[in-house]
Amino acid sequence: MPDKQDGKKLGRRQFLKWSAGAGLAAVLSSPFLPVLNPVKAANVPLPGPSHDTSHSNEGGDPKKVRAWTMVVDLKKCDGCVTIDAPPQCTQACIDGHFAPKGQEWIQIFGVDLPGGGQSFLPVPCYQCENAPCVNVCPVAATYHNEDGVVLIDHKRCIGCRMCMAACPYHRRFFNWAAPEVPPEAALAHYSPLYPVPAVKGTVIKCMFCAHFLRDGKLPYCVAGCPMKALYMGDRNEDIASNGVEVVQLSKFLDENDAFRWKEGLGTQPRVWYLPGHGQNFNRHASDPRPLKRPVWNWGGDGYNYQIEPLTWKRRPNETKD
């Protein structure tokens, strides 16, 4: 009898010890879980029709790893000044993504040439292989997908803007308010591959139209360029296309003296430039015609308004919030 009692007592004590130990281990190890599993946390598949099945059926083998790469032939880029239009790549991007007013995910910069002339530089997100923005994100909301594209999960983004600080190309935008978008944007199914409609208080940027690429479709900007100056390709398959011609990517880059913007930073952008100033369309480097601003067809005044204290009248975006 005493033995039995002792045994029982011991058993209970043992159990308590075990459970206390397990609890302690769980508590102590919980801060280290993200360390053990950092990438998985980022690549949790997200709901949305464009993520897996619906779009990748036509694009051949879904398991094939891509390395999406963009090439911009600056010899063909005239900033659309010769056709007297806003840059059509930017315009197509804005219209296709309902990009909030003021955000040019692919933006054309005027670059000063040594003799006083100017060339144009279309700049999408460079989808850097060594992406500073991905490194600094505290919650893994921005990440590389399996094809090397840098995406943002707007359901996870906390809006700290650390990635904007890290990006040396200024290619990230913030949704400072509830974005002004046309009504049809509400029909879109959000996914990190197609972040429409934009989410207030989160960071947004170009994502190479990753929802199109696996289907063999070209991004809005590439398809929208009237000069066919933009090429989209896959480094693994060594192929690129601007919609009318198909080139061998490696040869194309080598033979046209391709360069990358701010190569010295070591960020390894996936966007290459072929030097030029639009000469293929008879644009002279000294052509003074300036770039035209893209237009947002759905009105509003972007993020330029400021809210004054104690004005109780209705404000411009009252109904949208």
């Binding site: 490194n135 505290p138 919650v139």
Partner: peptide
Amino acid sequence: MPIIDMGRPERVWHMIAFGRFQSPLLWDI
């Protein structure tokens, strides 16, 4: 202050749930 500065302060718990030690912000926390 950084919480006030955040675009989505209601998601501040993401820092713990999905925190990455690679980020300087987590070192801060």
